[in-house]
Amino acid sequence: MSDRQVEISIDGNDVTVNEGATLLDACREHNIETPTLCYLENLTPVNACRVCVVELEGSRTLVPACSRQAEPGMKIQTDSERVRHSRKLVLELLASSVDMSLANDEIQGFMKRYDAEPEKFGKTAPASAEGERDRRRTGHHHAPDGATAETVAQPVKIHDEMYVRDYSRCILCYKCVEACGVDAQNSFAISAAGRGFDARISTEFNTRLDDSACVYCGNCIGVCPTGALMFKPEHDHREAGTWDEASQSVTRTVCSYCGVGCNLELRVQDNEIVRVTSPTDHDVTDGHLCIKGRFGWQFVQNR
């Protein structure tokens, strides 16, 4: 990164940031809490969720902090009425159409901070039948009657012992697509398909993952912020009502399969590994793993 500095004003305070920094970098550097959903340090910003928008003087619309670079003289507001309105509405629109109950604590915090009231769009419509959302004809929909609010609710997809895909929880942040593609794995097993509200994450022709290009690295699950993608053991615990985060411990270790030296974080409940991740700031993995580190831990528990 260049050592040149850029001066901008955030909420009336003049601050200096590195040239090339985004407005989000600038806000974080100066401890201004900025909500994000589709942004992750180890992925290319797609700026699709729009929850990080800030008000930029001279701009007709708000701008996404995660991808807009700081330019000299920019004056931004991060907590104006317009900013609060857009952030609140984005959260409400998502929570009214997607099951956000397993979204991480940070997201739950945003909902509280912006007083999101997703109920205001009415009671939720019934879930669609299995596979129905995957076959919708592009550019067409059945007219709603307004009595209920449409959602993406649909049956969960479980086809193997490793992955659970619960697209009722998908906010279309594109993180999984990026992690599966050039940002990490280069498998390209999934993509956004369809259009508009019927857009969804899909393999080709909605084929099962084991028939697709998926290599089961689990990196998509690693980046999913809402629990739409989940490791099967975690899903089973949650279904059985035995998932108990408070009692879990995290052990950091190094993967023993090869010589690369990937750091692993083993989440353990009742002396049983329930989830394996890697720290996003670990310089070997950038938070990404392969199938062995992610799923090949059963031998540890071979008692």
């Binding site: 929850v51 629109l93 159409s97 509200f197």
Partner: peptide, 22 residues
């Protein structure tokens, strides 16, 4: 129908507008 579906305000907003209008 014509929203590309990429960003939340448009993808879900257009649905909610239609529901309210209905």
């Amino acid at each position: 129908d014509e929203s590309c579906g990429q960003c939340v305000p448009c993808r879900v907003g257009t649905v909610r507008v239609e529901e309210a209008l209905q």
